[in-house]
Design a protein around this nucleic acid. Structure first.
Lengths: 162, 162
DNA sequence: TTGATAATGAAAACCATTTTCAATAAGGAG
DNA sequence: CTCCTTATTGAAAATGGTTTTCATTATCAA
């Protein structure tokens, strides 16, 4: 069993390099999963990814998808989200380019998720400051944050009982 | 089946009044659950609540705890959280007093959760602004937000492989 | 007090995720 | 290129938090 820690986020190496560096082997399945995540729309479930992967590589099992996603998540290559619909959602952590960074707006009724990038800069700036304060105050090594807004989307709002 | 919607958060009535107003009946079990939530430490799991409730009222079942928590959550009386340990956590929404408002700092290894109130005012101020912008931009009726920081607590940081 | 029906507990079902385990394949050594 | 160690795999079974089912009980308006 290769080590799962000490391989935190960040670093200039490509995925393959990062994998190797952490003692993992690069397999067809893992490559396929990373490809899907790179190309696809955001916040896919494990099952979503499984379906897309097997379109091209029918041999890959759902179990492996889960296993790979856990590794990627631990390495900080993938973020894991919970939008309240009973299954985890995954998306590739943003690359080096800034415009990728976004937060989520979740409809608590139909579970639709909207990515937004507006106001992000201010949010991130404040978070950075908070992060620094909290790290010191509570002796935490913070390496991620989560911001989500919850409410009713236009459609669900209209359908809702007055 | 009483209506579960249109009974959003806020409002000056006590719980009993809110319940009645929404067509729910007040029972021993529900009262006990609310009591526990009021008195206890933060972020309890359904099972935690179940155990505490049955200490005093052995008749109450786990199923009812889940059912009640869902209602309370839908009414905005209780917040439901996911800290990544496979079970939902619940805490009473803060009362009218400000100092209650807090966000969470989660250790991704041992899952320990720390409530913090520092920086909250600035965070909330910014969130309010963002909320307004997002509501208009995406036609969402936003009624809640979530901020969490993830990292390693001091203990887990020390134990981690260099 | 009474009657309509909301709420309940126990047990079974559900279902996303994990674990088990024997078979396979990645990749460094030679 | 071949061998060998062992990480990885898929299938099936297990897990475990949460939901459903359903017959019984309790709430509360009239």
């Amino acid at each position: 069993m290769p080590r799962m820690d000490g391989c935190g986020p960040g670093g200039p190496m490509g995925w393959r390099g990062r994998f190797k560096g952490c003692g993992y082997r690069m397999t067809t399945g893992r490559e396929a999963i990373l490809d899907i995540l790179t190309v696809s729309e955001k916040h896919l479930s494990a099952e979503d990814i499984y379906r897309k992967v097997t379109e091209k590589y029918p041999g890959v099992g759902l179990t492996s998808v889960y296993r790979t996603l856990e590794i990627l998540s631990n390495m900080g290559i993938v973020y894991k989200f919970d939008f309240g619909d009973g299954r985890a959602r995954y998306e590739l952590a943003e690359g080096s380019k800034k415009p990728d960074h976004h937060h989520h707006l979740v409809c608590t009724k139909c579970k639709r998720v909207i990515d937004y990038t507006e106001f992000i800069d201010e949010e991130v700036e404040l978070l950075k400051k908070t992060e620094k304060g909290l790290s010191k105050r509570y002796n935490f090594a913070i390496n991620n944050h989560l911001i989500q807004f919850y409410g009713l989307c236009g459609k669900c709002k209209a359908e809702s009982p007055k």
